[in-house]
Design a protein around this nucleic acid. Sequence first.
DNA 1: ATGGTGGGGGACCCA
Length: 255
Amino acid sequence: MKIASWNVNSLNVRLPHLEQWLAEFGPDVVGIQETKLEDHKFPDAALAAAGYRSVFAGQKTYNGVALLARGAIEDVQIGIPGFEDEQKRVIAGTIGDVRVINLYVVNGQDVGTDKYGYKLRWLEAVREWIKAELAVYPQLVVLGDFNIAPDARDVHDPEVWNETHILTSAAEREALQALLGLGLHDAFRLHNEEAGVFSWWDYRMAAFRRNLGLRIDLTLVSDALKPRVTAAGIDRAPRKLERPSDHAPAWVEIA
DNA sequence: ATGGTGGGGGACCCA
């Protein structure tokens, strides 16, 4: 089964791209971020017509997450239990024998800002929750827009994107490592060692054409799922379309 | 590293 993560940067604008990509790529499960839609505006009928059930947690203007699957989505959890947060950034569900947690991690703006503090607190809360989830659901995928580039291979210019920069700062990378320390693995790195494979490119400065990007969209798999991973990658095709999202889908294939 | 772009919503906020 193919499981993917895509930050669509407004599902209202990107629904045609999503429909096209579902038809062409054929994922079994998709975690969507930045839907920017209130729940009553979610296009569940259009997605059902495309063959996907959906569960979602959205709000006006910002954030918003959803899970799509060809099969039933059970035991749906919205938000981090016990962590008060008005921002819709988390949705989890079980599809078959796999638990999928979809995260839209806080961006954090700049190191040292209030938003950066919120990002680190949020990451701590999500780690505590995922630790508990792993105990219940050993076959776990944690995917999403992590807003953290794991290491120097995942940024176009490591001198700019260094230990003091947002998305690559020491504390952010430590938080990601702490998450991986629970028994999760960056699926992309199970099968790809190369540098310069990115999932996000700034809209400005013709960044996509010049491949000035970051790999911040990740699919993490648990110890129990790791031996079932047959491939992982990033599908750049939707980023080439007219009026694209600034992110491309990251995917993992599980046998 | 910015802000040259983009989304939302209707002036700025967020990324």
